[in-house]
Amino acid sequence: MKHYLIALYQPQGPAPEPEALQTIMDELGVLRRELESSGSWVFGDGLHDPSTATVLRPSEGRVLMTDGPFAEGKEHLGGFVILRAPDLDAALEWGRRYALATTLPVEVRPFATEGGR
């Protein structure tokens, strides 16, 4: 088994309308239960807005702290899921379902070391 990151990218701006958001949350719940019951779920959650981020940069042995996200952009990392899958095809299938459920573009990326148990 290998570990994959499913990163969800969302556009800047207000959250979807409450009803639309509820549908998305329901579908994410279904996906999470499926991942858990198949033993594929590792961790996942949504993130607070990028304005809540703090960046630390090493500089000449010290660390400088700045307010705000690492990179400003039209889209930002809105949340992520880490899952176990036998190969990329299986991970891409989960990624496809996350893209449909959230209506967001997702990035599927392998972790460097083997997943273990």
């Binding site: 036998p86 990329l88 095809d89």
Partner: peptide
């Protein structure tokens, strides 16, 4: 190798 793209013929559905 790193993303483990499988080395197989896809299932009938795919």
């Amino acid at each position: 190798r790193d993303a483990r793209i499988p080395y197989r013929v896809p299932s009938d559905a795919d």
